[in-house]
């Protein structure tokens, strides 16, 4: 037997041999009976129902499980909040299109609006500018018309070498006129 165990046994023997003495048992009896008589310890049906229903929360493993579940819920909540905040920040960084620019019509109209969006993303600011749908349609029509005419013009130039040479010459002259910044 180790010295540690020997000491342990000796101290235990003293504690086992020394029984605590309860003095004033009469006073305890009187106090308890007094409390019972005062009615402070009447059977409260509500308390009994609650105790019967929820006494299981005093079971150790149930308590531990509840604590674990609460911690997991808090962690999940925190994670969810972080994801929501991240989402909100992403949305903040995006360009917001409001009002008549929002698509509500047919495919053709969508095409026009997409082109309009392309234009705005090339540097045209819409901040503070008020423009009606009709004006936008006019603008898009002009743009389409201009693009068609441009294609026709390019084709005509390509078909006529003399004209092409002339235009290239003129464009070269114009280029030279531009001051070097």
């Amino acid at each position: 037997m180790t010295a540690e165990r020997e000491k342990y046994k000796k101290v235990l023997a003293i504690l086992r041999g020394s029984k605590p003495e309860l003095k004033g048992i009469d006073l305890i009896q009187d106090n308890v009976i007094g409390r019972i008589r005062k009615g402070g310890v009447k059977h409260n049906p509500l308390t009994e129902v609650v105790e019967n229903l929820f006494a299981w929360i005093y079971i150790g493993w149930v308590r531990r499980s509840l604590v674990t579940a609460s911690v997991l819920l808090v962690v999940f909540f925190a994670y969810q909040q972080t994801m929501i905040l991240k989402g909100v920040n992403d949305i903040n960084k995006r360009e917001i299109v409001t009002g008549p620019d929002a698509f509500t019509g047919t495919y053709d109209e969508l095409d026009k609006q997409v082109r309009m969006l392309k234009l705005t993303s090339r540097g045209m600011s819409t901040g503070g500018l008020k423009i009606t749908e009709k004006r936008i349609e006019q603008l898009l029509d002009s743009y389409n018309e201009l693009q068609d005419k441009y294609i026709d013009l390019i084709r005509i130039i390509e078909e006529d070498p003399v004209l092409k040479e002339y235009i290239e010459e003129r464009l070269g002259e114009d280029k030279n006129k531009i001051p070097n910044l």
């Binding site: 000491k7 342990y8 101290v11």
Partner: peptide
């Protein structure tokens, strides 16, 4: 264990 250590 705890009490044993302390006694020792």
């Amino acid at each position: 264990k705890q009490i044993g250590k302390m006694l020792d």
